[in-house]
Amino acid sequence: MPAEPTARELVDRFGRMTADGRFQTLRLLVPGKGDSPVLEPFLLSTANDTAEDDLVRVEAVRAIPLLDFAEPALVDRCRDALHRLAREDDDWDVRNAAGCVVFDLPGAENSVDPIRAMLAAEPEEFVRANVSAALNLFLRRA
C-alpha cells in the first residue's frame, strides 16, 4: 500500500493535478503533525486564488480548521483571511464557506462581530442564512 503523500509532496504535485484531483485531494486531506507550517500558506493561497475552480477553493477553506493551531499567530492569520474571504470574495460559495468555517477555529468568539458586520452587507440570502445558522450554533455552544 503506497504511503500518503507528505504535505510538501501534496503542495508540489497540486498544480499538476486536474481540478477534480485537486478537489479530491483537499477533500480527503488529513494533515500530519508538523504539516501546518507547509499547509497554512498553501491552503490560504488556494482559497484566495480566483483563477482556481470554486469547488477547490471551498475545499481549501474547509480544510483550514484541520491545521494544528498550537502557534497563536497561525490561527490569527487564518481567521483574518477567512474574515476577508467572507466579506470580500466575489464567489458566494467561498464567502459562504469562509463565514461558516471561521467558527471552527480556536478563539471563534473573535469572529462574532466581524461576521455580524459581514452579514449586514451580504447580498445573497443563501449565504446570509447559512452563515447566520453557523453563528447562532456557535453562540448556543458558547
Rank of each mutant, 00 (worst) to 15 (best):
L135C: 11
P123W: 03
L29G: 02
R8S: 13
I115Y: 09
S36W: 02
V112W: 10
V112E: 13
F23L: 11
L82F: 07
D90T: 08
T6E: 12
D89R: 03
R27H: 01
P114D: 09
F126H: 01
E40N: 05
D20T: 10
R79C: 05
A63P: 04
E88M: 06
I64D: 02
R57H: 03
L135H: 08
A133K: 12
F126P: 00
T25I: 00
G32T: 07
L55W: 14
A120W: 00
F126G: 04
R62K: 07
L135Q: 07
E52A: 15
A81Y: 00
L82G: 01
R87T: 09
A117K: 07
A70Q: 05
M1K: 05
V94N: 09
T46F: 02
D54Y: 11
L137Y: 09
A120Q: 11
E9L: 01
D104S: 10
E88P: 01
N96H: 13
D35R: 00
D104L: 13
T18E: 04
L28Q: 09
A81C: 01
L82I: 08
D20M: 13
W92P: 06
A73G: 03
N136H: 13
L139S: 06
P106Q: 07
V61N: 03
F14K: 03
R13Q: 15
G107K: 08
A51T: 12
G99L: 15
S132G: 15
A81H: 13
L74W: 01
G99S: 14
K33A: 14
L105C: 12
L85N: 09
G15F: 04
P114I: 00
L67N: 04
W92N: 08
D12N: 10
E124Q: 12
N130S: 13
G32I: 03
V102L: 04
P114S: 03
G34L: 10
P2G: 06
D104G: 13
L135A: 00
R57L: 15
L135S: 01
R57A: 15
R22H: 06
R87K: 09
D104K: 13
N130T: 10
V30M: 09
A97V: 08
S36N: 10
D89E: 13
D89W: 03
L67D: 05
E52V: 02
D76Q: 11
M17Q: 12
L44V: 01
R22M: 12
R62Q: 14
A19P: 05
V38G: 01
R16G: 06
F42N: 05
R79D: 10
R77A: 05
V102I: 15
R141V: 06
R13P: 01
E71Q: 07
G15V: 01
R84M: 12
R128F: 04
D35S: 09
R8D: 14
S45Y: 04
R57C: 05
P2R: 10
T18C: 06
E124M: 15
E4L: 14
L66Q: 11
L39Q: 00
V75Q: 03
P65Y: 03
E9S: 13
L44Y: 00
V30H: 06
R79E: 09
E4G: 03
G32V: 07
C100R: 07
L28C: 04
D89N: 14
E125Y: 10
T18Y: 00
P2A: 15
D68S: 10
D80M: 09
D89K: 01
R84K: 14
R95K: 06
L28A: 12
C78F: 10
L119G: 11
E9W: 05
C78A: 14
